[in-house]
């Protein structure tokens, strides 16, 4: 029996499916945290009307559109502008003063989803007068999400939350300066993306591509098991310059990572680390 919960999925079939996805599509979900991955796979079975993971696997090889849909289910896209306002407040008040000391600033936003975090960062850096000397690399494995990020169009009903978050993060301007409302959508100011490069990059299979002074990777590591988490944190360790900053999601921590020693929690907050 397959429940929506997905905890009755066959473990052998699950491993085979992940192996097949890796071989056929080069997306590596083999080291994703299993409990929530099982839930998402069970949802995929329901959405795709498959009885078993083997059935899903057979369809993956024959129907190209099945993988496109599966990828949307397997990658969780939840985000918001200035999601977790205290994080951005901390960035603005404690870290920006240090970032000012760099003549040029390179930032990596890993797992940028549909761009909410990138726009938040761009707005913050513009408010702080740093955007013009910044370069932001925004990466994700979900091409649909990257496409949305580049478009910068969000449903208008999300704007009240965005506005409230922006204010709570210590925003110095009015969020309405950065978007225009049209046909039920908020279209973000294109100039916020002038210093942004989006690209398809997987923390599971790709390597470091630049030296940066700041990495934001929030609510991505929660989807990885310890092995993959360690790989990803290893990439951040190699990408960050000495004394560069790493910001994580509000419930993430390096405390259980093999690379913990390479970073210092210089702030009382568990979310912020410095390469040491």
């Amino acid at each position: 029996m397959t429940t929506e919960a997905g905890f009755d999925l066959d473990d052998g079939e699950l491993s085979l499916l992940l192996e097949a996805i890796y071989l056929r599509f080069h997306y590596d979900f083999r080291n994703y945290a299993r409990a929530s991955l099982r839930r998402r796979l069970a949802q995929a079975l329901l959405r795709l009307r498959c009885e078993t993971l083997s059935h899903l696997q057979a369809r993956l090889f024959r129907e190209p559109e099945v993988f496109t849909l599966l990828l949307q289910v397997l990658t969780v896209q939840v985000s918001d502008l200035f999601r977790d306002p205290p994080f951005f407040r901390y960035l603005r008040e404690q870290i920006v003063p240090e970032l000012r000391t760099y003549p040029s600033l390179k930032v990596w936003v890993a797992g940028c989803a549909a761009g909410e975090e990138v726009f938040s960062l761009s707005i913050l850096l513009r408010e702080e007068g740093l955007l013009d000397r910044a370069m932001i690399y925004a990466t994700d494995i979900n091409p649909e999400a990257l496409r949305k990020a580049e478009a910068g169009v969000y449903a208008l009903e999300r704007v009240p939350t965005f506005t409230e978050n922006h204010r709570a993060s210590g925003g110095r301007s009015s969020l309405s300066d950065y978007y225009t409302a049209a046909y039920g959508s908020a279209v973000l100011d294109r100039s916020l993306l002038k210093r942004v490069v989006f690209s398809d990059h997987s923390l599971a299979t790709d390597n470091v591509f630049a030296e940066v002074q700041l990495v934001l990777c929030r609510n991505v590591l929660i989807y990885f098991d310890k092995v993959l988490q360690s790989r990803a944190i290893g990439l951040f360790k190699d990408a960050l310059c000495r004394r560069g900053f790493l910001g994580l999601g509000s419930r993430e921590s390096l405390a259980f990572s093999a690379h913990a020693a390479a970073f210092k929690r210089t702030f009382p907050n568990e979310q912020w680390y410095r390469r040491w």
């Binding site: 409990a35 998402r40 969780v76 939840v78 929660i222 989807y223 419930r251």
Partner: peptide, 21 residues
């Protein structure tokens, strides 16, 4: 369970969080 995250337990008996719907 922290607010606004799902809380799960892995078989190795560690906590896992998720932002699914």
């Amino acid at each position: 369970a922290p607010p606004d995250y799902h809380l799960l337990v892995e078989r190795e008996r560690t906590f896992a969080l998720s932002l699914e719907a």
